[in-house]
Nucleic acid binder design. Structure first.
Length: 426
RNA sequence: GGAGAGGUGGCCGAGUGGUUGAAGGCGCAGCACUGGAAAUGCUGUUUAGGGGAAACUUUAACGAGGGUUCGAAUCCCUCCCUCUCCGCCA
């Protein structure tokens, strides 16, 4: 959520930044108008309330000091109080309505892009920052797509998973399950030693949590909903970020780094026909997520470090990848600045997103009301949140299945996973 | 699922309609005392919004939302959450 004060004080600047996502998409003027009305009403309401409070006190004092509660003095005050109450009840619905409208509008407005985010209209204008691992690109010309090698080795079973659930689900069998588990454990172990504290959070969350991280109210159609106001998480970002919702943290306890393995559930609405085969786009997938809570002045550096932590996994797995910086037109709803890691998938001859590392600045913190207090400094401040995949397991599995294929149709286990799998080849 | 209890400030805990943003204690901060510290004493110690250059002032908040009243932490209604016992269960 954007800061209404900032919008009020600097509308042109905020509007200009917002326009970088795509001109004319979001108009701040209605918010400004409502805000103006709201403050005028509030001044009136405040004055009435002040008088009402005075009357209440006065009646109390008079009765205590012996005035006749039925006498005309008290009766007059009561009448005035009643009048004020009527006036308040006329104004109050207005302010409440206007406040709710402002809130609704604000919740639907995305974060303002960072000044440093490259300006562009769509993913075509994203900027490649660096590549790594060209020397590990396989030169085997007969590489099978991962879903084929997976079926061939008998470690992925899509058709049975479809029978059990639906399209876009998979069952991992035998070494496939073991490989998935090895990847999870390896990633967690690595991130824990990089300084992240592991969390195993709820994977059903309430709608307040989803509002806090920005999935609601706008993106309900991308989520699976259960009864009782509970939703399956689309990413561990939601439960982990909301761990500290409505809290005031001590500055000395920052930064906080968490890593979390969870399954993730997405409807993938609007992507019919895209990536229909394989492990790339499923309704359920596993992911290790990194989440940081930091002081505002450190968030840019923390962001770079977060990306490095995600990259370290790909490097340890010797999987070729590149780092893309998203342009303003391709930035996610809550992100101010975002780097994607894309892993090399030789069967397709392309890089595919395997991690998305975003700096949300105070956007989520404001929605989720996560603040910190610095000793000796008056008041509280919103902290900055960041998160990134470290990494998406299913897509990592796909990358391993393709990049580690041998000419004879078997698979070499990446060095760092051998101790987990206790095997060198599959 | 059945029966009961409860949700008050950073924490503990009082408070059943009247000047209570909330006694008391703990904790924390500052000052005094001390060679220094402990102990002690004094002072201070929530958050958010509005107005104001500021000093300051005003409003709101005792789980959430509504109601009664001139006035609600206190009374009424709805919802949420926590705990205990019974049942069921990985």
């Amino acid at each position: 959520m954007l800061d209404i004060k900032q919008i009020r004080e600097n509308p042109a600047k905020i509007q200009e930044l917002l326009n970088r996502r795509g001109a004319d998409l979001y108009d701040l003027q209605p918010i400004l108008d409502l805000d103006q009305q709201q403050r005028e009403l509030e001044i009136q309401l405040n004055q009435l309330q002040t008088r009402s409070n005075q009357i209440g006190k006065l009646i109390g004092e008079k009765i205590k000091s012996g005035s006749d509660p039925k006498g005309s003095e008290i009766q007059d005050l009561r009448e005035e109080g009643n009048n004020i109450k009527t006036q308040i009840s006329e104004l109050e619905p207005n302010t409440k309505g206007i406040k709710a409208q402002i809130e609704e509008l604000l919740l639907a407005i995305p974060n303002i892009p960072c000044e440093s985010s490259p300006i562009g209209k769509n993913e075509k204008e994203n900027v490649e920052i660096r590549r790594w691992g060209d020397q590990y690109m396989p030169n085997n010309p007969n590489i099978l797509p991962h879903w084929e090698i997976g079926e061939k080795l008998g470690i992925t079973d899509f058709s049975r998973a479809v029978k059990v659930a639906q399209a876009r689900f998979v069952a991992l069998i035998g070494a496939g399950a073991a490989l998935e588990r090895a990847l999870i454990n390896f990633m967690l172990d690595q991130q824990i030693s990089a300084g992240y504290t592991e969390v195993l959070p709820p994977i059903l969350v309430n709608s307040n949590s989803l509002k806090g991280t920005g999935q609601l109210p706008k993106f309900a159609e991308e989520l699976f909903k259960c009864d009782d106001d509970l939703w399956l998480i689309p990413t561990a970002e939601v439960p982990v970020t909301n761990l500290y919702r409505d809290e005031i943290l001590e500055a000395e306890n920052l930064p906080i780094y968490h890593c979390a393995y969870t399954p993730c559930f997405r409807r993938e609405a609007g992507s019919y026909g895209k990536d229909t085969r394989g492990l790339i786009r499923l309704h359920q997938f596993n992911k290790v997520e990194l989440v940081k809570f930091v002081k505002p002045e450190n968030s840019a550096q923390e962001h770079e470090n977060l990306v490095a932590n995600a990259e370290a996994i790909l490097q340890a797995l010797k999987l070729p990848y590149r780092v893309i910086e998203l342009c303003t037109g391709d930035l996610g709803f809550g992100a101010s600045k975002c780097y994607d890691l894309e892993v090399w998938l030789p069967s397709a001859g392309t890089y595919r997103e395997i991690s998305s590392c975003s700096n949300f600045k105070d956007f989520q913190a404001r929605r989720a009301n996560i603040r910190f207090k610095e000793k000796g400094v008056k008041g509280t401040q919103f902290l900055h949140t960041l998160n990134g995949s470290g990494l998406a397991i299913g897509r990592t599995m796909a990358a391993v299945l393709e990049n580690y294929q041998l000419a004879d149709g078997t698979l070499k286990v990446p060095d760092v996973l051998q101790s987990y799998l206790k095997k060198e080849y599959l």
